[in-house]
């Protein structure tokens, strides 16, 4: 063969659109974020408080009714776990940039933790057990981005 010939070429772009329904429980949670308020819900049996709220307590296998057992919580919490990373997804140019702090924060009065960035902190300052509070977005929209992250109290 004198020249390279492509016999079969398949080039296609498949586009996939996915939705994600959060359900009524999380819906209520996000609605409250818009007002800079954190809420959780409480298992009717063991009393565990979930942030974000959920329909079923997996420990007790109890369905928590949508209308009841809501708990108002403060915007303060405790760092229960953390990591420090210079890595940025989809942005390798910034790889050697400033370290990013990610923490699992247990909101005071709840039994679960949520993962957010820890802001305005030096890596050497972070400790498990330290007290933090929510840094709210200026204009909350009722979605997860309303919590910018957590700052030192």
């Amino acid at each position: 063969m004198s020249e390279d010939k492509v016999i079969v070429a398949n080039r296609g772009l498949v586009r996939a659109d996915f939705n994600f329904w959060v359900g009524r429980y999380l819906d209520k949670f996000y609605d409250n974020l818009e007002n800079k308020k954190v809420i959780g819900n409480k298992c009717t049996k063991c009393g565990a408080v979930f942030v974000p709220p959920r329909k079923v307590c997996g420990e007790c296998n109890v369905v928590i009714p949508l209308e009841e057992n809501w708990v108002d919580l403060p915007d303060t919490g405790t760092v229960v776990n953390y990591t420090i990373t210079p890595y940025r997804i989809n942005d390798r140019t910034l790889r050697k940039a400033k370290n990013l702090l990610l923490g699992m924060v247990q909101i005071d009065g709840s039994n679960t933790s949520i993962v957010y960035r820890l802001l305005d902190l030096e890596p050497s300052e972070v400790k498990i057990g330290m007290k933090v509070k929510i840094d709210w977005a200026e204009k909350p929209k009722g979605d997860p981005s309303d919590i910018k992250g957590f700052v030192k109290v």
């Binding site: 329904w21 959060v22 359900g23 429980y25 329909k55 369905v63």
Partner: peptide
């Protein structure tokens, strides 16, 4: 469109 529930909540309805 059962947008009132997420996937896990939908399943829990059938289990219940």
């Amino acid at each position: 469109k059962r947008s009132d529930v997420n996937m896990a909540e939908l399943v829990s309805e059938a289990v219940s």
